[in-house]
Design a protein around this nucleic acid. Sequence first.
DNA 1: ATTACTTTCGGGTACGTACACGTGTAAAAT
DNA 2: ATTTTACACGTGTACGTACCCGAAAGTAAT
Lengths: 353, 353
Amino acid sequence: MKANQNEQPNGVKEIARRAKVSIATVDRVIHNRSGVSAKTRTRIEKIIQELNYQPNIIASRLASRKVLNFAILIPSVSAETAFWAAPLAGIQQAEDEIKQMGIKVDRYFFDLNSKTSFTKQTKQILKSKVDGILLAPSFIEESIAFTDALKEKNIPYVFINSDIPNRESLCYIGPDLFHSGYLSAHVINYCIQPRDKILVVNVSHEIENHHHLLRKEEGFRSYFKDNEKRIVKIDIRQTNDRSVEKKVAEALDNTPNIKAIFVTNSRVANVAHYLESKGRKGILLVGYDFLPENIAYLQRSVIDFLICQKPQEQGYRGIMALYQHLVMAAPVEKVSFMPIDIITRENYAYYKN
Amino acid sequence: MKANQNEQPNGVKEIARRAKVSIATVDRVIHNRSGVSAKTRTRIEKIIQELNYQPNIIASRLASRKVLNFAILIPSVSAETAFWAAPLAGIQQAEDEIKQMGIKVDRYFFDLNSKTSFTKQTKQILKSKVDGILLAPSFIEESIAFTDALKEKNIPYVFINSDIPNRESLCYIGPDLFHSGYLSAHVINYCIQPRDKILVVNVSHEIENHHHLLRKEEGFRSYFKDNEKRIVKIDIRQTNDRSVEKKVAEALDNTPNIKAIFVTNSRVANVAHYLESKGRKGILLVGYDFLPENIAYLQRSVIDFLICQKPQEQGYRGIMALYQHLVMAAPVEKVSFMPIDIITRENYAYYKN
DNA sequence: ATTACTTTCGGGTACGTACACGTGTAAAAT
DNA sequence: ATTTTACACGTGTACGTACCCGAAAGTAAT
């Protein structure tokens, strides 16, 4: 018995046969390279439509020895931004899985406290040969400029961890920031009395520039929209323990009956440090991110809840989204919200970042 | 300039060169087919080791026109088992993504109330040409027998939704059942008073055979291990509204001060139906799964919390694990616990199953 | 030694696409 | 009219592996 059953009748060869041209010409049309007359081109295009031609990715990747270059642009990992170690790990994991397909990932980092470092890196990326980009659009204006340039070059990009809507990104992967603030409010509301006050704390050098924080605060406030007066808010621009302590102490002194503190990012550890060192009990503390320092406070019940968003998976999925799009030519979901996980002393041991 | 930079010096060709044989012989060794003398074989194997040869998957898939067959074996989707529609959707999604790589997914379904339907399907699968299997090992004994057969044939398998540890599965993808029960207990404990009693309800034709339910109950009990007497438990083997109502009513009558009910699966809707129809308020109701029926009760605050475990993603990941293993030859994590999400009236709108 | 058979191995083609190169033709320039 | 240039297209090889087929070498039986 011939093992050779009748072939699937698509593929460039079939197109070429029907169009009465060589496969090279078909190839030119497919990759819209030059060297094909308008007439032939449209004829071939029509046939491609009819056959609903799906290129064989396997063969394509094999034949083109060129590697695809992905670039990532995220904050550098430091004591202040330990969070980003997790997405980076996820990116590594994704790269390991798909490097077989001839994919390289170039890593670019910027300083969360420096817009210039961000733009500098975007320029580097634009100079390099790159086919797809995963970026944390921490600085809005700069990110818009960057993605405009990318759009012109027709390079797809994925936003991670915070989104800029309507920017024609391939997709967004990260938390629903607004909802994460809202949910935090919900959790806090469960645990305190109706008259208790709540302190919202933003700790960052660049509060205005990180819509990230603001969006969470909005979500938080929206939960209490009928009760705005319960919320006291402070912005802290120095991220060291000392200035955080000072500002928080001030706020607590100025407003009696604060029974809960919501810190809009991972700097919750600073606040925890203060509460613990001064032995202030009876204040519910809620913040962000599954970091060793935060977990330590969680264990000691200084921090009560940590909101987490699977940062590692964010990195993994971000790369995979580019892969799906560029290599597999598969559709990609526009938005992929990460689950908003609530970590407590009881369940942190089970959490997989 | 010659575009041809020096090649990567691995691959079968290099092996053949070093071993002074043809690539055909190397190929025989790699796929340990017959027709190679022991001496040559070991020599080639040594070189393969030395070079740390990684076959080029792209080329391999292209050259072998054979398709890989994955099989799934999960409960059929019915009114009673609506849950399984979600994993099925995830499986579909995964298949769409990887069918380009020449992968087919055969779907086998069994009746959750019939062991024989399960074994019948396993036999079907074993008769078919199959390269990897995703299964819900709902019936333990039968699943063990099945996977024994698979082990013999060297066919990898992935457990989904409930695990049988130490069975050498490629991996497990699903919730940490014990922990999900534990967490439910935690949530309930937050919401009721220390002296209130809790009713645990198992609703299933085959309670003993579905360790699934039992494992959740264990987790639940372990949270209250110092306070076992707070828990009252009933097993209901008829899944219709009527018998559920009768049994639950009985339990509520027999034990005063029951302030919370924990239903160990998606049949929580039956209980909700009873509570609503009798207008019984003030009882916290917690159960499983993001099903339309359950959500409806959640909206009306009859159900207070639903525990969910990303069923769609389970299906997606299960197929992808097989894919990673069989096609990409990439390592796969042994256990992939799904997040245990707590759905409430406030956040269900945001949930992505 | 010849035949018959088995074992061991190499040659060569195929998978579907990418792309370098060459050929042919018509228009433009001389 | 001849040369140049641009354009339109085909030929052929390569990517790295899988596997068919047949050749060579070895072994056993006659």
